[in-house]
Nucleic acid binder design. Structure first.
Lengths: 192, 192
DNA sequence: GCTAAACGTTAACCCAAGTTAAGAAATGAA
DNA sequence: TTCATTTCTTAACTTGGGTTAACGTTTAGC
């Protein structure tokens, strides 16, 4: 159950056996069914999430329509960094796309780890930097690329997304509507 | 010359007279003419910038076209946070829009301040968080709003931009081309 | 295995942004 | 003040995404 997270954390910071096990002891396991909401828009995000198995998405509501901001798969750490930083209500929902097993680490425990094991400060910084750079990448995608380019790049960079995520979520992630994604796929298929 | 920055820094962190003056002694003053480049795409960003007077923009080149990402006016701290974080080449140009007076603080000096005056760690964190939240705001603008909504909100939230920044820069910031911005303006004017 | 729900594609029509080019207006630098 | 440069607007035309609705297919969950 904890093999993956041990590996991921160990690849980022140096911990001895005792520290690593102390960390693991703070984790909570939760299971979510398809479409189940993990974090609701408006709540304050008090946990960091590690995905053991499954796949989740971030989305928010815009005039009744769901806008998907990101997908995440196994072996990643995620949190609503905006809510975490400012302690304000989350603007995102986090939802399981498949049956998903998640390890939760409460902010309280994380802050205690910052205090007791200095290496965790580094983990915190790496998570923050990753959040910034990930957001920047998405922003650049949206400003610099046409919908068709975004589609082609997503297939190239993260083909897994197309295997595991319904297409209308992907359309919304690419900043377009489902019929447009269908047309783009057809257009590209016809070119070949 | 240093009144503004003293006020801004003092409003964020608590420093005594000596610390504040020590900080000021590390600053370097530079002047830039209209259109002059402050930081070139591809260089590593080694400074944080404080604008004393004037106005700057961030932009990058995309297939020969300049995409404007942000405008900044007096009394703000800015840096290419992506380049600063990762130590990689900047993906942005920083350019003076008007005659601009800037105070520079080198990363080296900033890191020394982190070590010698703990309060500066807080300043660093606040700058980082502001960068993240600013970027998130822009991302949400681009994903959640139509060009017309973006235009109306920019007028509402930052009317100064329209007084001091050429319109084709604004168009690019809004994610559209100059003729489109003109049409939007006409459309809105005709409605009234 | 069955059934309802979810999903993907297509068509027809609309509309807004892109492109290009031209000309008018405003502005900066000498 | 003048002139070159920059900036803004407009027009004509093209392109591609949005909308709506229909239909067929797939899939989840019992």
């Amino acid at each position: 159950m904890y093999e993956q997270i041990k590996e991921v954390v160990s690849s980022l910071i140096n911990l001895n056996e005792v520290e690593l096990n102390y960390f693991i002891s703070k984790l909570q396991v939760k299971h979510f069914n398809r479409k189940e909401i993990i974090l609701q828009e408006g709540q304050i995000c008090r946990y960091a999430y590690f995905i053991n198995r499954g796949c989740i998405r971030y989305f928010h509501n815009l005039e009744g329509e769901e806008i998907t901001a990101q997908f995440f798969f196994e072996n990643g750490w995620y949190t609503d960094y905006g809510s975490y930083l400012s302690g304000t209500a989350s603007t995102q929902n986090i939802q399981a796309i498949e049956k998903t097993e998640i390890l939760l680490l409460s902010k309280t425990d994380l802050y205690n780890l910052y205090q007791t094991i200095p290496q965790f400060e580094k983990l915190g910084r790496l998570m923050a930097e990753r959040a910034f750079l990930g957001l920047r990448q998405r922003t650049e995608m949206l400003t610099n690329q046409t919908p068709e380019e975004r589609y082609l790049n997503l297939i190239k960079d993260r083909p897994k997304v197309f295997e595991r995520v319904p297409q209308h979520y992907i359309a919304s992630y690419l900043g377009i509507k489902a019929p447009s994604l269908s047309r783009i796929r057809k257009r590209i298929f016809d070119k070949k």
